[in-house]
Design a protein around this nucleic acid. Structure first.
Lengths: 215, 215, 215, 215
DNA sequence: GATGAATGAGCCTTCATTCAT
DNA sequence: AATGAATGAAGGCTCATTCAT
């Protein structure tokens, strides 16, 4: 699959149509997954004919990849900026906040990511190494400098915690709401989850120390 | 859809065939999802003819539900026993351990659960309320008795953390391994994740207090 | 389908565009046939937009018919002149030569004719009766006057021979070259085929006599 | 495209179905060409469902190739036997007769061959080299031994004549009938065309000599 | 006159499911 | 109980054609 899947639109109108298709695709793919989605449904959601869709994207697969790519882009940028930040301590909370805000505004993104992730994540590995690189590095550095546990093996484990608690919060929201009897899509839930993450980030060194000491 | 989807096998041979089909289905469904899986592939994986499959399961949907049901059963039992336990404090660590052991032994289960969860989780809500009920209740009680935060809203949030860190650990293992540069399917990773969960359970009251106090 | 399919071009520029489209269509139709050709490919070959093509030709079918019509016109004229010729004996060789020259210069024409012919030739029957009328008549007259075989049934059979050896030579050239190990599109092949036809025309009476006598 | 396109049938019933599909495909392909044929029409003609067709042939293209392969087989065998014949002189007439009989009995075959031939004949070149090899060789030997013309270049030209007058007779029959005012599909036409070919074969040396001498 | 954008119809192919053996 | 054969119902994708600029 080509890494630049979308056939570039030549016109402002075309550009807009391609955008509408991407939006529609994000919604429908998030709802039903790649295999469960019918291109006709995407077209209908976008308000265009199926054939129009194929003017801008050579195949359903390419469209899916384009959707994912576009969804990941802002996250990559947020983390990129964080990586360039000299004072990580000060930048942590705003970064967490920015990530959560973005995910809340685009709930399809974490669901798309999780769908891919559960099925092996070949696609994500390609796109996402740029993404998680900084996060990984950050956690590693923090843990090592702060209160380093003797067991280095916890570094990725703790990195994963952040992935679970950011993406997972949104990707699993419908299920969590249903099962745990609370609205995980409410602004309050968002605020609390953000607070949880910030608190965790602050506690990380403590937790890591405890873990490293086998407590 | 019938809640008892499998047509009971009448003979030992039939019983064994049905089991082989369930195993095969779990593997393939976990790999490709419900929509992305072809009945023929399940049959091939099980080493039987497609028509044979329809002797035991009336449809692909029913088979899928049966797979999920069977995968969830042991987890429900583990949590059920925990719920009946008088000394939660003492039972926590062994319960976490049992859950993790089971998930590690049946990695298809968490992936199937996550697939369903991302797509709204209608099916899970039906099956899983039995499952998460005890967990929810437990956390609530612990938090309230222990070091109760003033903000009750964190109870489900903290419940979700356990879901993320148990199921998510296995469901996202392939992606996490790839991205965070560590083998999340190794015995060491299992040990560390279990330890993390146990530590967190112990720290819950502390964390909850901090959160509740807005720190 | 209208018998004058092309919308007359009003300007010199339009005339030229229409011509380019006809040329392109001849090439592509000859290569892939009517059904196998995409309008877009013709447009691309002609260097115009697809919509432009529809300014000059109301449909793919009409364009195809126009191409065939234009390709047949010169052949009809050559044979028309031959029909008007008083001294057939003297005119035969130059006529054969003219036909072969034209076909060699426009190799798409015989291929288009053959494509149509193999599929029943409805279209050709309409266009082509003008064409083969003279040929048929000529052969008949020659045979009857010259060395008439007793069996009149051979007249059309021998007429067909000329069709096979003129059109077929060009229409099947690629295959013949490949299979018989010679370049049927070379000037030498053209010369020899022309010579063969001339020789055959001269021998016709002899052959016809032999055939008529059942030898 | 695989050279053995048909998925082998496991059963007598399957074998028969595959045969019916091949027959139907031959008919419809001959009528409309590869691109112009709809698989549904083949299925209908064969009296089966479209999906059934795909059990035995992986694609329309493969089916087409299989049809051609099967149609060519008997011709290859006839010519193969001729090639092994010591007394070519005596075997010529029976061979011509056998070829013509076969083509008359299976009129789809020459039409399929011609369709392919007009479009370049890539496929035929692969399948057919076996076919025309003997013919080519025979003519060459005859011409060289009999009354050899000084110009060797006529050998393939004369080989082509036989191709035109055997396959072409059947492939173009509908058009010829219409244009030349005779029934080219009647038994009489078959008899006369066979006689023409036999006569030509006998005259070949004479014609060749004349041609070689530039007359 | 020319073109990029858009579409309705239809084609090839697949797939869940049933039937006959 | 088990299977090869068969099918109806889509699904992805293409294509001839039209429209708005």
């Amino acid at each position: 699959m080509a890494s630049v899947p979308a056939v570039e639109a030549r016109t402002a109108r075309g550009e807009e149509t391609a955008g509408r298709i991407l939006d529609a695709a994000a919604t429908v793919f998030a709802r039903r997954g790649l295999a469960g989605t019918r291109v006709r449904d995407i077209a209908t959601e976008a308000g265009v004919n199926v054939a129009t869709l194929y003017i801008y994207f050579p195949s359903k697969q390419h469209l899916h990849e384009a959707v994912l790519e576009r969804g990941l882009q802002p996250l990559i940028e947020i983390l990129g900026r964080f990586a360039d930040e000299p004072d990580k301590q000060a930048a942590t909370a705003p970064t967490i906040d920015a990530v959560m805000q973005h995910l809340a505004a685009h709930p399809a993104v974490p669901r798309l990511i999780y769908q891919e992730a559960v099925c092996g994540g070949e696609l994500l590995a390609r796109i996402g190494s740029r993404w998680f690189g900084p996060l990984d590095e950050l956690i590693g550095r923090e843990l090592r400098t702060g209160a380093m546990p003797s067991d280095e093996g916890f570094v990725p484990i703790l990195g994963a915690v952040f992935l679970h608690l950011t993406l997972g919060h949104f990707a699993l929201a419908p299920l969590l709401s249903r099962i745990l009897g609370a609205d995980f899509e409410s602004p309050e839930a968002l605020r609390r989850q953000t607070q949880l993450l910030t608190t965790l980030a602050r506690q990380l060194s403590v937790t890591a120390r405890d873990l490293g000491n086998g407590r």
